[in-house]
Design a binder for these strands. Structure first.
Lengths: 341, 341
DNA sequence: CGCAGTTTCGTGAACGTTCACGGTCCAATC
DNA sequence: GATTGGACCGTGAACGTTCACGAAACTGCG
């Protein structure tokens, strides 16, 4: 038997190695390792010690092949660095673990990868995928074949399950609040990958909802665009406030960017909310730690995770059929009035 | 063949089903699916279409069994809700993905589970584990057998790889800063699961380092204890500041708790840093979004993740032997002076 | 038409485990 | 002493895929 310098066998030990070392058969080793009955206690001891000594660990592949799959779900996420996603992921992982599932995560935010890349990376390893893909749901579902895909915040059809958010409702809540507090000069800060200079119309679903509601209410308002980071939001908001000092209310694409806006307002000497209200979106835990505490269109992120896992559970068990009415959920934001609006 | 109401075959389709449907052999299907040469383009097309239609996806178990494992690593994490961990996890996932590894995460912070529970849950599914276990490293390693375990921030021996932090160095930096800015009445806010009333000595490694350094410098100081959340820290700090208004410097167990302290100070009308300095620990991104921006003993969390992955890479490839000098790393904090100290 | 060479395809074996069944041994009972 | 029953243990088969090899079909050319 060939050994590495450290004394480890070069090849992984199999059940047969243990059986040979103990002078017993495969099946006896199986019984010893898996706490099965029908084996003398002394041999169980001996076999387990030998197994430990040889560094034997059963092959998950062989085990899975014969026993039928323990389910493992993929979790595709754009950016773990954005506090929104860990809060969501935490809930998914918790509930999946409760069901005995394993969760394979892919944070596809690095190296120019897309949500589709993430699904393709996860596909050979999982029985289902939950994810914020940002497009290509149909293609992603076809990569997975029969295995259910659950997409969040995705307009496109094609996935076995969909969870969406009622942005019209959210926009209604926020705009009404601004009107109610007599704000006159509203701005909406939108996230965009490449903020070109001449943008006058929001491109995201939530942006369109906000714009629609503002127009409907007959408000005059401006569009600001920045990359989806706190720092970029801060810079963009600072520039805008300099150019438009009359601004007295800012709606922001998400809470992370809102944190940047808050900083910009403070730097510009604007009191929030007295001089200028700020409303974020998402309801990430971070919001409550800011000074002043961020008012926001809050989603219960644990609830979102729960919805995703339960939907998947239904699809896997067959109690929900892909593409049916029950496979499509719409969740609503609530207005969390804290200190900034 | 039995079908469910939705038209799906009850059993998973295997490669033989596809082969039969296409009137070819196993091997031809394999060639078609895996882009192998030696197959007519027209049959490849036909087989792929049939496979799509039957919803065939190759069994990862059978594939893994014959091809040898694609490596997948477990990531055991106490609490994804604490911004420290996602920042770390993000880096691990990125670099692991770059190597073609899969990452299975377990957030063991819910339901009273321990780090050891997490390892036991992950063990049957992975080829290695990276994790903040908070104890029992030796037992966890024995659960994994030959498969390497990399523990972070763990005093105990036993794991194949260890990454530690130089808390003495960190304490030195922080205390020196407080002395340099002429602080007289220092408090250290410690995290503890069950903050009993009569605690006078820190129980954590970092707490001991801070205490040691403060004593060494001949400072008079107090110990505060709270649960490891921002809210608990806020409450505890508020009470302490009420009882000890003379306090002019607070060191905090981590940044999340420091955020709570900042809120408490603001509520108590104390200006930070003029009236009272605050220094956190970890260097989580959140710190820069707070007002005022948190001064902290910062760790480059992406670097920590990189260290863990590279160490694991070395252990897996055999270029580093478990328990050797190279398998033990110590990283240092740097003092990130922002606005609170 | 015949043959070599190439392209295309099929067949046994193997991966490591568990399942279902069958065998052996020993003690107790008749 | 033969029989029974239980405790303990071993053997073929199967899971679904790929690998290594060999067979067949087709091509071009003399």
């Amino acid at each position: 038997m060939s050994h590495t310098p450290s004394g480890y066998p070069a090849k992984r030990a199999t059940i047969l190695d243990v059986a040979a070392a103990a002078g017993v058969s495969r099946q006896t080793v199986t019984r010893a390792m898996n706490g099965m009955p029908g084996i003398k206690e002394s041999t169980r001891q001996r076999v387990q010690e030998l197994a430990q000594e040889l560094g034997y660990t059963p092959s998950r592949f062989a085990k899975g092949l014969v026993q039928g799959a323990r389910t493992s779900v993929g979790l595709a996420i754009p950016d773990l660095t954005n506090p929104y996603y860990p809060a969501f992921a935490s809930s998914v992982v918790e509930l999946a673990t409760l069901r005995g599932w394993h969760v394979v995560v892919d944070d596809y935010g690095h190296g120019g990868r897309s949500g589709l890349d993430a699904v393709e990376h996860l596909a050979p390893q999982v029985d289902a995928v939950i994810g914020y893909l940002g497009g290509h749901a149909d293609h992603a579902q076809s990569v997975l074949g029969r295995r259910p895909l659950i997409v969040l915040d995705e307009a496109q059809e094609g996935a076995a399950g969909r969870i969406n958010f009622d942005y019209d409702h959210a926009a209604l809540l926020a705009v009404d609040r601004l009107i109610h507090t007599k704000r006159q000069h509203i701005a909406y800060l939108e996230a965009a990958a490449a903020p070109s200079g001449g943008v006058h119309v929001p491109s995201t679903v939530r942006g369109k909802a906000v714009a629609g509601r503002l127009d409907e209410a007959g408000m005059s308002w401006s569009l600001i665009v920045a990359e989806e980071t706190a720092e970029a939001a801060k810079v963009a908001a600072a520039a805008f406030l300099r150019a438009h000092p009359e601004t007295d209310g800012i709606l922001v694409f998400n809470d992370l960017m809102a944190a940047g806006v808050l900083k910009a307002a403070a730097d510009a000497g604007r009191r929030v909310p007295e001089d200028c209200a700020v409303v974020g979106m998402d309801g990430i835990p971070l919001g409550e730690l800011l000074t002043p505490q961020l008012s926001t269109l809050a989603l219960d992120l644990r609830e979102v995770g729960r919805a995703a896992v339960e939907l998947l559970d239904g699809l896997l068990s067959g109690s929900i059929t892909p593409g049916s009415v029950e496979s499509r959920l719409t969740l609503q934001h609530r207005l969390a009035l804290r200190e900034t609006a």
